[in-house]
Structures are given as C-alpha cells and as structure tokens.
Amino acid sequence: MSLTAERFTKVDDIPAIYWADLHCTQNSYYSPEFLKAFEVGNNDITFHYIFILKDTTAVAFANTQLVTIGVKTITKNIKIVPWLKRLVNGIFCDNKIRVLFCGNVFLSGEYGTFLKVGEPKVDTFKAIASSIDDLVKSIRVNAIFVKDFENESLCITDELKDFDYASMRVEPNMTIGLKPEWHSFDDYKNALRSKYRVKANKADKDSDALTVKLFNEHDIAEHINALQALYENTIANADFNAQVLDLNTYISLKAQFKERFIIQGYFYENKLVGFLSAMKNQDNLDAHFIGIDYEQNRDLAIYPRILNDYVRLGISLKAERINLGRTASEIKSTLGAQPEELMCYVKHKYKLPNSTLKPFIKNVKIKSFRQHRAFKKL
C-alpha cells in the first residue's frame, strides 16, 4: 500500500473531497467549521493539517498546533524528584519552548487523529507519525506532544514508541453515563446515594441568588471581555495550561453550531460571575472551558452549580454521556463521574535531549484522587 502525505496551514485550502473521503465530519471536532473557528480566532498559533492519501483518496487526518510554552509551566505541578525537575529546567535554560501538539490543545480527548474506517489502522497511523516527523524537520520546534488516546487505541498508538516517543499517562477525563430513564434532574438525583443527593441539592440552594442565562451569539460578543477575564482567572488556578484561548473563537463556534454549542452565563447583581461552555457532539455532551469569579465562588457556589447544570444540559439534550473533562476529578466523581484513562506521547526533536527527556517522562506521576461511588447499587 503506497501512502503519501499532504499538509495545509489553512482549513480553506483543504479540498472538500478529502473530508468526503474520510466521512469524519459527523464528529464536530473533525469538521472544517470547528477547526477554522480555532484557526481564525488564535493568531499566535501555527496550524498544520495533515492528510494521508492512498493514491488520491484521503484515508487519515491529523490536526496539529505549534505553540510556545514556558518550561516551568510544564514542570511546576508534575510529581517528580526535585533533582530531575531541576535538570529538565536546566536543559531548556528555564526558557520557553516550542511544542507541536498533535491533537486539539484546547480539548481533552481523542480528537487529534482520524483513521478512515476499513483502512489498515496501524499502517495509516504510522504514516501519520512519519508525516509529523517530516513536518518537524521543516519548522523550528523543540518537542512533539501527541495526545490524548483511550486504552482501546493503544494497540495502534504504541507504534509511536518506534518513532522514539515516550508514553505518559495524563489526568483522566471524567465522564457520566446518562440513563435513558432520566428525563429530568430529579430523576438523576433519585439515582444518587443519599449523601450525594444532599450535596447536589445544597449546590442548587447555595447558588439560588445567581441568575442564569443561555447566551446567543450577540450575548457572547457583548460580554466577551468579562468572559475572557473569568476564563483566564480560572486557568490561572489550573495545574497546567498549554495555551490561552481567545474566546472570540466562541463567537464563531456559536454562529456555526447554533444550539449545539452552549454558553451559559451566571450573574449576581447584574454582574457576570461565571460561565460554562459545552458542545453537543453526536451522543456526547462535552464540557469545554469554564470561568469563575473566585471571590464570589464560596458564597455563591458557582462551581458546584456549574457541575449540576452540566448534568441538566446533558439530560435536556438527550445525551448518552457527559464528558466533564480533566481536573477536579474527585469533585466530579461526587456527581457519578468515572475516570477514562488517557495516554499521551512525547519526544524532543533531537536525539540527545530526547535521551534525557525519556527518564523524566517515565518518572511523571499523575495526581491520585479519591473516587466516590455516587450512585445507588442496582
């Protein structure tokens, strides 16, 4: 099987027939409209879209973004021995590095590569890996990070180890499976054990002073500065964030995806103090970024209310599953969320630094957390 690669830096330059060949656009995250919204809204990122062709037919796709990250941003919250952390910081001179991400840097999940149904998966994935190596040779970059793969994909993605990548576990996605008999939030709460039902009710009671509004495109534009500030306030408290999203991206997403892309604002005394964002993608409701005024969070229970409202939205949209994303895993498990393990692959562009990086990657430990069993036993 003879495979070739073709690269593009703009979505508009991609031939429409390639999307038709792959049959991938029913998943919103592989649609040109979704990809273009991020491309247009984030001028400080360089985008490369890779298509693997068999003769002239597209059989695989990879989405990459080239971003600049401070090394200490990467190492500050990673659990490794102090001397190794100092060594890695020293290798990069405590400086910023350029990282090529394969996978959407703003999403948590397996949205970076797509392999056409019916094609040999290992061969096409290896063709993607080879094309990434070819891309890396032509650009200024320090490291490559291929993300986020579920356990059932590892029999394919572990081929990256032959390309000198090291594998590493990252924080899991926390997901809630919704029962078809849950037609309301009360139905969901009735399935919870008593202590977790009390917790959900308390979140609603403590946030009763909030006014909640679903945003349309005009609302997002009107409140864009406040949304951006709340979002940046929230990611400043995160363990790791590779890149700051320009939330003007959300105006484009709302225009393209209408009711499938959701922004919900939380107001207190006419001031925006929080928001959630989400995408209904096929049978899933995926939580995207949130924003919180932490000075008001304790008194108004903004974050617990946001979590409750993700469940409400999932039920109202008849989703089969809610993906609450990474971080705050223990809190999310109190709503019934279960961890979905994810694997990433990392390497330095050059062999000698990569030989030093590999032991660092092997020593990375993800945070442990207490997994609550929120639902009643059947």
Results as ranks from 00 to 15, higher is better:
Leu3Cys: 07
Thr9Ile: 00
Lys10Gly: 08
Val11Asn: 02
Ala16Thr: 03
Ala16Gln: 00
Ala20Thr: 04
Cys24Asp: 09
Cys24Thr: 04
Asn27Ala: 06
Ser28Gly: 03
Pro32Ala: 09
Glu33Gly: 04
Glu33Leu: 09
Phe34Thr: 05
Leu35Val: 03
Lys36Val: 02
Asn43Arg: 01
Ile45Leu: 09
Phe47Ala: 02
Phe47Lys: 01
Phe51Ser: 04
Phe51Trp: 02
Phe51Tyr: 01
Leu53Ile: 10
Lys54Asp: 01
Lys54Cys: 08
Lys54Ser: 09
Thr57Arg: 00
Val59Gln: 00
Leu66Glu: 10
Ile69Glu: 12
Ile69His: 06
Gly70Gln: 15
Gly70Phe: 13
Gly70Ile: 01
Val71Arg: 06
Ile74His: 10
Thr75Lys: 00
Asn77Trp: 13
Ile78Gln: 07
Val81Leu: 07
Pro82Leu: 08
Pro82Thr: 00
Leu84Arg: 01
Lys85Met: 05
Lys96Ile: 02
Ile97Gly: 14
Arg98Cys: 12
Val99Asp: 11
Leu100Asp: 15
Phe101Gly: 07
Cys102Thr: 13
Gly103Thr: 06
Asn104Gln: 03
Phe106Arg: 00
Phe106Cys: 04
Leu115Ser: 11
Lys116Ala: 06
Glu119Val: 06
Pro120Lys: 02
Val122Met: 13
Asp123Met: 05
Phe125Ile: 08
Ala129Lys: 04
Ser131His: 05
Asp134Glu: 14
Asp134Ala: 14
Leu135Val: 13
Lys137Ser: 14
Lys147Thr: 11
Lys147Glu: 08
Glu152Tyr: 15
Glu152Asn: 14
Ser153Lys: 11
Cys155Ala: 15
Thr157Lys: 01
Asp158Cys: 01
Tyr165Cys: 04
Ala166Gln: 06
Ile176Tyr: 14
Ile176Val: 06
Phe185Met: 07
Phe185Leu: 08
Phe185Thr: 03
Asp186Glu: 12
Tyr188Ala: 01
Ser194Glu: 15
Lys195Phe: 11
Arg197Gly: 13
Val198Leu: 14
Asn201His: 15
Lys205Leu: 13
Lys205Tyr: 15
Asp206Ala: 13
Ser207Lys: 00
Ala209Tyr: 10
Thr211Ala: 15
Lys213Asn: 05
Glu222Asn: 08
His223Gln: 06
Asn225Lys: 12
Leu227Ser: 08
Gln228Leu: 06
Gln228Pro: 02
Ala229Leu: 10
Ala229Thr: 01
Asn233Met: 12
Asn233Gly: 15
Asn233Phe: 10
Ala236Leu: 01
Asn237Tyr: 13
Gln243Gly: 14
Asp246Leu: 01
Leu253Ser: 08
Lys254Arg: 11
Lys258Met: 07
Lys258Ile: 03
Phe261Ser: 04
Ile263Glu: 04
Ile263Cys: 07
Phe267His: 08
Tyr268Ile: 05
Leu272Ala: 00
Gly274Pro: 05
Ala278Met: 09
Gln282Asn: 04
Ala287Arg: 02
Ala287Tyr: 12
His288Asn: 11
Phe289Pro: 13
Asp293Thr: 02
Glu295Asn: 12
Asp299Leu: 09
Leu300Gln: 00
Ile302Thr: 11
Arg305Gln: 14
Val311Phe: 12
Arg312Pro: 04
Ile315Phe: 07
Lys318Thr: 04
Ser333Tyr: 08
Ala337Met: 09
Pro339Trp: 09
Pro339Glu: 06
Met343Thr: 15
Lys347Ser: 11
Lys347Glu: 12
Leu352His: 12
Asn354Tyr: 02
Ser355Ala: 14
Thr356Leu: 15
Ile366Glu: 13
Ser368Ile: 03
His372Glu: 15
Lys376His: 09
Lys376Cys: 05
Lys377Ile: 05
